Amino acid sequence: MEFTTGARLEVRITPDDVGKRVSVRRLTDACETGARFTDAVGVLTSWDAGELRLTRRNGQVVRIPESAVVAAKVVPAEPARRRGPAATAAELVRVAARGWPPVVSEQLGDWTLRASDGFTGRANSVLPLGGPGLPLDAALARVTRWYGERGLPAMVQVATGAAGTQESLAAELDARGWSVRRAALMQVGELAPVADRGAAQRVELSRTASAEWFTLYNRAGEPTPAARTVLEGGPSVWFATVPGADGVPAAIGRCVVDGRWAGFAAVEVSPEHRRRGLATTVMAALAARALQEGASAAYLQVEPDNEPALALYEGLRFTTHHAYHYRYRPTT
């Protein structure tokens, strides 16, 4: 525990400490058992509307009412753990899903049905991490109804190309006419070499995506509620902006820290500022922040035909771990 018995209890943090690693002692509801206090250590990711939110090293989010806090202080950031990016596909898929949370979801056995008003495939598709708990045809019928009720096409995200992935499910869907529409590569790399590429260009980091940030994010356009929910969700999220002229950033990026993993997304550079290394600058700033929170490995998703992005990530020593694609229900 971070607080020793008999130590003076003081709250020595404020909302200005959001983004720092803190230790918080709070009152519990189990006073009659003698357990009056419990401690939580993690990154203070928000302090709004009378509630603190801490993200622990394992990605767990702890919500603490401000009225229950009896002591708190900033504690030194953990040194980056040395464990590299080795991982199973199942681990990576779960981490990536936590870092891109849908607006609504529902479990069907070990399948997660996700919907977010159509904002991105990952947030509007089935994530199968095992069996659905009923025969496949019945499960697919349930999936079709669930997405139809939300005005969305039925879609399943299927991982391939690594041990433990879902080639058998892909074959079953193929036999039923579920077509492949889009594909992506899951790439991994060590985090420290990315942070080492930092440059003198100023990069602003924030916990929320500003209206200016959205002007460069090509997937969203106007920041819809669904887009904000997905982009600002996750264990410990950071947005990077390289300021530009006329309110349009020169470059942007997003990173979500979840335990040892840092996930990069939305790295964009405005056309007039390309070929200046700004994408690398953005990723380096985000990587440095993730290292401070104890991460050591990185992941990202990239389309296989995006040659400029693939060249960038290869230069940052990312390699492909596995691939995934989306299967769409056949039209009748």
Score class of each variant (00 low, 15 high):
residue 3 F to C: 09
residue 5 T to K: 09
residue 6 G to P: 01
residue 13 I to C: 05
residue 13 I to G: 02
residue 15 P to M: 07
residue 17 D to E: 09
residue 22 V to R: 00
residue 25 R to L: 15
residue 25 R to K: 13
residue 26 R to T: 07
residue 29 D to V: 10
residue 29 D to R: 13
residue 36 R to L: 14
residue 37 F to R: 05
residue 38 T to A: 14
residue 38 T to F: 01
residue 41 V to L: 07
residue 48 D to S: 11
residue 50 G to P: 12
residue 50 G to Y: 10
residue 53 R to A: 14
residue 55 T to G: 00
residue 55 T to K: 05
residue 56 R to C: 11
residue 61 V to M: 09
residue 63 R to M: 08
residue 71 A to P: 07
residue 71 A to Q: 07
residue 71 A to M: 05
residue 77 A to C: 11
residue 78 E to W: 02
residue 78 E to R: 12
residue 83 R to Q: 10
residue 83 R to Y: 04
residue 85 P to T: 09
residue 86 A to V: 12
residue 86 A to F: 12
residue 87 A to N: 04
residue 89 A to W: 02
residue 101 P to S: 11
residue 102 P to E: 09
residue 104 V to M: 05
residue 104 V to G: 06
residue 106 E to G: 05
residue 118 G to Y: 03
residue 119 F to M: 02
residue 122 R to D: 00
residue 125 S to P: 07
residue 125 S to A: 15
residue 129 L to W: 00
residue 139 A to G: 06
residue 146 W to H: 10
residue 146 W to E: 06
residue 159 A to S: 14
residue 166 Q to E: 14
residue 167 E to D: 13
residue 167 E to Y: 02
residue 174 D to G: 15
residue 179 S to C: 04
residue 179 S to R: 15
residue 190 E to K: 05
residue 195 A to C: 07
residue 198 G to Q: 10
residue 201 Q to L: 07
residue 204 E to H: 07
residue 206 S to F: 09
residue 209 A to D: 03
residue 219 R to L: 13
residue 219 R to E: 13
residue 226 A to T: 08
residue 231 L to C: 07
residue 231 L to D: 12
residue 235 P to R: 01
residue 237 V to K: 02
residue 238 W to I: 03
residue 241 T to N: 00
residue 245 A to R: 13
residue 247 G to K: 08
residue 254 R to W: 03
residue 257 V to S: 15
residue 257 V to N: 01
residue 261 W to F: 06
residue 267 V to K: 00
residue 269 V to H: 00
residue 276 R to Q: 15
residue 278 L to D: 02
residue 282 V to R: 09
residue 282 V to S: 08
residue 282 V to D: 03
residue 283 M to Q: 15
residue 284 A to G: 06
residue 287 A to Q: 01
residue 292 Q to R: 09
residue 297 A to G: 02
residue 299 Y to R: 10
residue 299 Y to I: 05
residue 301 Q to P: 04
residue 306 N to E: 09
residue 309 A to W: 03
residue 310 L to E: 06
residue 311 A to M: 07
residue 311 A to F: 08
residue 317 R to P: 00
residue 317 R to S: 13
residue 317 R to E: 13
residue 329 R to L: 11
